[in-house]
Amino acid sequence: MEPLSNRKKNVAQKEMTLSERMYLPAIAQGLGITLKHFFKKKATINYPEETRQRSEIWRGLHVLKRDENGAERCTACGLCAVACPAEAITMTAGERKAGEEHLYREEKYAVTYEVNMLRCIFCGLCEEACPKAAIFLQDDKLAPARYERDEFIYGKDRLVEPLKTTETK
C-alpha cells in the first residue's frame, strides 16, 4: 500500500546473517547480558521491613481532617458521596448542639460517615469534591488486607484524624 503520510519508516525484518543462523553468537550475547545482571545491585525493596517512597500526592487511605482547634471539618454536605463513582461513601448529617463547638467546626456535621473500602477505588474524586478540606487521601497509609468483609466499612472511629493529644500516646 502506498504511504498515507511522509513519515513512514520501514523497520521490517532483515535477513539473518550467517552468524545469526548459527544460534550461538546471539545466545552467548544473551548469556552475557544475564550474567552481567547476576552481579548487579538488586532492585528489590524488602517490604515489609523497608517501604518504598511514595509520592506526596499518593491516593491512599482516607482521613477526615480536624481543623487547628481539633474540631472536625466535615459538614456533611454530601458532595463527596455524590462525586464518588463507586458509591462507597454514606453519611448521615446532624445538627450541632450547643457546647459541641470544639468538636465540630460547622453547624452541621456528619453523625455517621462510612467509607466502604472494598468499593472504594481511590480515585480521589471525593478529596477533589470536598469544599471544606475535610476528607483527604493520605499518602503514608494504605488500606490493609483483612479477613472479614465487615471490617472494611470504615466508620468515623477509623476515619477521623486522631486528636493531637492521643497522637502522643
Binding site: G78, A81, V82, C84, E87, I89, T90, M91, N116, R119, I153
Partner: peptide
Amino acid sequence: EDKIDTYFG
C-alpha cells in the same frame, strides 16, 4: 446490598 440510593442524587 451495601448501598443507600438516597445519597447519590
